[in-house]
Design a protein around this nucleic acid. Structure first.
Lengths: 242, 242
DNA sequence: CCTTTTCGAATCATATGACAATATCCGGAG
DNA sequence: CTCCGGATATTGTCATATGATTCGAAAAGG
């Protein structure tokens, strides 16, 4: 019985399990021992095992399902998203700063995507453009396709970092203007600019791709929620999406 | 009673508490109800309250200390760091891609820092440079100061995003060459380049600051890792628009 | 012999109670 | 008024019990 624990037992167990998972290179779907086995192996109570499982689950490393126990899972980017969102919100970041970050990220994304894109990426982007055109009058779905478009752009870089980091930044920004009615009116312009971006990427013209997306972001920022105070005031009613 | 819960109770409680915290704008140090009170308020057992606390603690939103209960705390960037590290590792990102990301981030940081830096930032950077020079022969401390230097750069942008995202990327990269003996030999060059960066930032010369840090990163990448020229090529395209 | 159904058992989800450890608070001594 | 020490409330951990859910095997039917 180790009485010298500084950290609480659940944390110790969780870290031990995490290291065990990462070191052994366990893939997603792999099973961890049952609660009873873990109790016996580490000489702790069920409560501790349970809280350790909760911690790992919160970290997105494992999924706990009744009767199946803990199964290793591919870490969920959404968790990072939430983390980043909480941190950014609590660090009093200003909309203008968020926009700056987004411009930098998307500019880099366009440049790299123009270099690294495959034919498959182009096909998906084309499909997305077509879908955007089809739903241009449906506010919710148009927004969803807009999000998807930028996600596909990030994917086209084939650099996981951009896929991971872009979505939280975008979704945070969108919270500021998601209920702006102006958004629909912009649809035509947005569509044109999206097409220009894809064209540049298809041509593998990095400079033009960057320019096109910066023009795009600049216009969106200009038309929508120009300043921070405006944006905040206009978004008085924040709708939660799940 | 509602038997239709698909999410487990601890998660439900954790989310409820999190929303409660964020909505009420509770600051760090603020106290949440005791376990007993939460049990009564939400009509759940202590087990559930406990696991919810573990989840929130894992998310970095609260700190649980014996006898003080749950206290709201300023979210810890280190948690995001760990999250991002796990995600990047498990997404099979390549070192070259990490370099590219770092070049983009640091290039943007230098540019913005040159614009936004205050006198205090400059003072801290100067102090850091002096310290770097003092410990140039001590491997561990030299590395620590190098990390601190880049952290101070990120801080000088006064944009929380860069502070949050830079550290995980850097630390991940450092894991790749942290045990390279070449690092010490580079100390003189590193110091010179750091000074050049600070000089450009002091002069509020964004372009030169970006160039200086890209030269710096390029050299480090070249000497240390199997430097991919990709990173330099792509980052050259990153430019700042006002 | 193969398919379907059903039922049992293993395992997780939650509840309850108990005890230990310890930080905080309050009252008394100086 | 300050300092010290014990009372006390609260968290940390353990043990046990019960309900719920799922997996798998046995049984039933074709």
């Amino acid at each position: 019985m180790a009485h010298l624990v500084r950290d609480r037992l659940p944390l110790v167990l969780a870290d031990a399990l995490q290291r065990s998972i990462l070191d052994k290179g366990m893939g997603s779907g792999d099973q961890l021992p049952t609660e009873a086995e873990l109790m016996a192996e580490y000489g702790v109570s069920r409560t501790v095992v349970r809280e350790a499982a909760a911690i790992l689950s919160a970290r997105g490393l494992v999924e706990v399902r009744p009767r199946r126990g803990m199964t290793v899972r591919e870490p969920d980017p959404a968790i990072l998203s939430e983390q980043l969102a909480v941190l950014l919100l609590s660090s009093h970041i200003e909309p203008g700063q968020l926009y700056e970050v987004r411009a930098i990220l998307e500019g880099a994304i366009a440049s790299i995507a123009a270099r690294e894109r495959t034919e498959e990426d182009l096909a998906e982007l084309d499909a997305c453009l077509a879908e955007e055109e089809a739903v241009r009058d449906d506010w919710d779905r148009a927004l969803a396709m807009d999000i998807r478009f930028h996600e596909l752009l990030a994917r086209s870089t084939h650099n996981p970092f951009f896929v991971l980091v872009t979505s939280p930044v975008s979704s945070l920004l969108r919270r500021l203007y998601v209920d702006q009615p102006k958004y629909l009116a912009l649809q035509d312009v947005i569509l044109d600019e999206h097409q220009a971006i894809v064209a540049a990427i298809r041509a593998m013209d990095s400079a033009e791709a960057t320019n096109a997306i910066l023009r795009h972001l600049g216009r969106v920022a200009q038309y929508i929620g120009q300043g921070e105070s405006k944006a905040r005031r206009a978004s008085g009613k924040v709708k939660q999406r799940s």
